[in-house]
Lab assay of single mutants.
Amino acid sequence: TFEVERIVRKKIVHGNTSYLVKWKNYSSKDNTWETEDDIRTKYGDLVDDFEK
């Protein structure tokens, strides 16, 4: 199971928000862009903290 360590960046393309996710126990080269809906479902607190 993958676990988010932190959110690195945010991008908005054509009105759709995605977050660059750093995965726990993986290197930064393994970071992936994930949709806001996918990340918010399980890691809403991390998204809220990133947006502060």
Results as ranks from 00 to 15, higher is better:
V4P: 14
R9T: 11
T32F: 01
E34H: 10
S27M: 08
L20N: 01
S18L: 15
S18T: 11
S27N: 09
G15T: 03
Y26V: 14
D48I: 08
K22L: 04
D45C: 07
I7R: 00
G44K: 14
I12T: 11
D30F: 15
S28I: 07
L46M: 12
E3A: 05
K52G: 07
F50N: 02
S28G: 09
T32E: 02
K29P: 06
I39V: 09
E51H: 05
E36H: 05
V13E: 12
S28H: 13
D49E: 14
N16W: 08
N31A: 10
D48R: 11
E36G: 08
D48G: 05
V13W: 08
V8L: 13
K52W: 07
T1C: 15
K22D: 03
D45F: 13
I12C: 13
S28Q: 10
K24W: 07
E3H: 05
Y43L: 04
S28W: 15
V13A: 08
E3Y: 04
N31C: 15
E34T: 05
K42G: 06
W23L: 03
F50G: 00
S27H: 10
D38W: 15
N16F: 10
F2I: 13
W23R: 01
E34Y: 10
T35L: 12
G44T: 08
G15K: 04
V47D: 00
V13F: 06
S28M: 11
V47L: 13
D48F: 07
K29A: 13
V47K: 02
E34F: 14
D30Y: 15
G15C: 06
N31E: 08
Y43H: 08
L20H: 02
E51A: 04
K42V: 11
G44L: 09
E3R: 04
T32K: 03
I12R: 07
K42P: 03
H14A: 13
G44Y: 08
E51T: 05
S18Q: 14
E36N: 03
T41E: 13
T41F: 12
V21F: 00
I7C: 15
S18P: 01
T41S: 13
H14Q: 12
I12Q: 07
T1H: 14
E51F: 05
D30A: 14
K52C: 08
H14M: 13
W23M: 02
D48V: 07
N25A: 06
N16G: 08
D45T: 12
G44I: 06
G15A: 04
D48C: 06
I12A: 04
T41H: 11
E5G: 03
E36Y: 08
E5W: 04
W23Y: 09
R9D: 14
E36C: 06
V4C: 07
I39E: 01
T35I: 07
I7M: 01
Y26E: 10
E3T: 06
Y26Q: 14
E34P: 01
Y26D: 08
D37L: 12
F2P: 14
K22F: 06
V21D: 02
L20Y: 09
V47H: 13
D49Y: 11
V4K: 01
N25E: 10
K22R: 05
T17E: 03
K29M: 12
T35W: 12
V8M: 09
K24T: 07
T1S: 14
G15Q: 04
N25S: 09
K10N: 10
H14P: 02
R6Q: 13
V13Q: 08
Y19Q: 00
K24M: 09
R9Y: 07
Y26S: 14
R6W: 10
L46I: 10
F50P: 02
N31F: 12
R9S: 14
E36V: 06
K10F: 04
I39A: 08
K24Y: 08
E36P: 03
K52D: 06
E36S: 08
G15Y: 04
K29L: 13
K52E: 08
V21K: 01
D49M: 12
K11F: 04
D48H: 07
D49W: 09
H14D: 15
S18M: 15
K22S: 05
W33R: 00
L20G: 00
R9V: 06
R9K: 12
D30C: 15
K10P: 00
K42S: 08
W33H: 01
R40M: 08
E51S: 02
I39S: 02
T17Y: 04
I7S: 00
K24L: 11
T32P: 00
G15H: 06
I7T: 02
D45V: 10
W23G: 01
H14G: 13
K29G: 09
R6P: 02
R40F: 05
K22W: 04
T41V: 13
V4S: 01
S27A: 09
D37K: 14
N16K: 15
R6H: 07
D45Q: 12
E3L: 06
V13N: 09
D30K: 14
T1A: 13
E36L: 07
N16C: 14
I12M: 06
D30T: 07
T17A: 09
F2C: 15
D49N: 10
K22T: 04
I12K: 07
K11Q: 08
K42I: 09
V4N: 01
E5I: 06
R40S: 04
I39F: 06
V8Q: 03
D30P: 07
L46G: 03
K24A: 08
N31P: 08
V47E: 01
V47F: 05
Y43G: 04
F50M: 02
S18N: 06
W33S: 01
T35E: 10
I7E: 00
Y43K: 03
V8S: 01
R6F: 14
L20P: 00
F50K: 03
V21E: 02
R9A: 15
D48K: 10
K42R: 11
E36I: 08
K11W: 05
T35Y: 09
T17G: 04
T41K: 14
S28L: 07
N31L: 14
V4I: 13
D37T: 12
V47Q: 03
D37P: 07
V4H: 02
R40L: 08
R9H: 08
V8D: 02
W33F: 02
F50Y: 10
T35A: 13
Y26L: 15
K42Q: 11
S28D: 14
G15R: 03
V47N: 01
K10L: 05
E3W: 05
V21R: 00
R6A: 13
K42N: 12
K52N: 11
D49L: 14
V8A: 02
E34V: 15
S27F: 06
L20Q: 05
E5N: 00
K11R: 13
D48Y: 07
V8R: 01
T41P: 11
E5F: 02
D49K: 13
T35P: 12
R6I: 12
I12W: 04
D48T: 08
S18D: 02
Y43S: 05
E34A: 07
V4Y: 02
T17H: 04
W33P: 00
E5Y: 03
Y26W: 07
V47T: 04
E34I: 15
K22N: 02
T41Q: 13
S28C: 15
I12H: 05
F2A: 14
I39Q: 01
W23T: 02
V47I: 13
L46V: 08
V13M: 10
Y19D: 00
V8T: 03
D48A: 11
D37M: 12
G44W: 12
G44F: 10
T17L: 08
Y19G: 00
W33G: 00
E51V: 05
R6Y: 14
N16M: 14
K24E: 04
G15W: 02
R6K: 15
